[in-house]
């Protein structure tokens, strides 16, 4: 019984610790602003940011911008997911293709992709398309590489089991290859979703008149630091939400996997 209640209190721990950490951070922030006498235009006090956040959240325009950023991110992410998984499976299964494309893949990985953003704006315009393309491009690589690794990592012993059972190709795929590759794909997706949102925001910084990235640039031009802070908080919340959605998908799809087990050990 003691073990059970200890488990439960461990599960509850993050729910207690997180608010405490947040409150402490706010207090430290407040004290810092008061003691240092720093200008509001550089670091606004937390109360001001919070009231600004309430104002920002109360404006319909904010939600339109938030929706645009979210759909750019999701659009780019989904494209990256489909293309990345297909490319990963093909490259994982066809060694000679992977070998001949390897220089290109390595080169395109080394290129700082954010540097290409202006080019994409030129090619795809100031609208939503260029942002979708940018976030797809950023999210694509981790998903593709992880899928490829997953396809290669199917256990030889488990393969022999399927062979000794006279399994068809489809059966081997369904019971072994797919299940065994899924954790890798999901790991790629966890990295990919974070990169996708970065892609969308960077795209919005550089071109266009929509999205939270654009809103952020506007608050900068207005020198409205508290609005900038508020928008950043909103962006982080969206990022968190998307990440946890992927994480929840992972827990749902591969409850048996070690990464999920380990996470359960840590935070239930």
């Amino acid at each position: 019984m003691r073990g059970v209640s200890r488990d439960r209190s461990r599960k509850l721990l993050p729910w207690i610790s997180t608010p405490i950490i947040l409150v402490l951070a706010f207090i430290a922030w407040d004290v810092f602003v008061r003691v240092s006498g720093i200008s509001d235009a550089v670091v606004p006090p937390p109360q001001k940011v919070l009231s600004e956040l309430v104002t920002v959240l109360g404006t319909a325009e904010t939600w339109e911008h938030a929706w645009i950023t979210t759909s750019e991110t999701l659009g780019g992410f989904l494209i990256a997911l489909v293309v990345g998984v297909v490319a990963g499976v093909v490259l994982g299964k066809v060694p000679w293709l992977e070998l001949s494309l390897r220089p290109v893949i390595v080169a395109s990985q080394v290129v700082p992709k954010v540097a290409l953003v202006p080019l994409f704006v030129v090619w795809f315009g100031f609208g939503i398309t260029s942002k979708v393309v940018i976030s797809a491009m950023l999210a694509f690589f981790p998903i593709m590489l992880n899928t490829q690794l997953g396809v290669r990592s199917v256990d030889a012993g488990q393969r022999e089991v399927m062979r000794s059972l006279n399994a068809t190709r489809w059966q081997t795929f369904r019971h072994l290859e797919m299940k065994s590759t899924l954790p890798y794909v999901l790991a790629g997706m966890e990295v990919g979703i974070v990169l996708a949102i970065i892609g969308a925001i960077v795209g919005e910084y550089l071109g266009g008149s929509e999205g939270l990235g654009y809103m952020l640039v506007r608050t900068l031009n207005d020198l409205n630091a508290s609005a900038m802070f508020a928008t950043t908080i909103l962006l982080s919340l969206i990022g968190l939400l998307l990440y946890f959605a992927v994480n929840a998908l992972k827990r749902f799809l591969i409850p048996w996997h070690e990464s999920v087990y380990a996470q359960q050990d840590l935070n239930g």
Binding site: G157, Q158, E160, V161, S164, L176, S180, W256
Partner: peptide, 12 residues
């Protein structure tokens, strides 16, 4: 066939 390693499928 029973292999030297169990070779079970962890997802099942």
């Amino acid at each position: 066939v029973v292999f030297q390693e169990a070779n079970l499928f962890p997802w099942y």
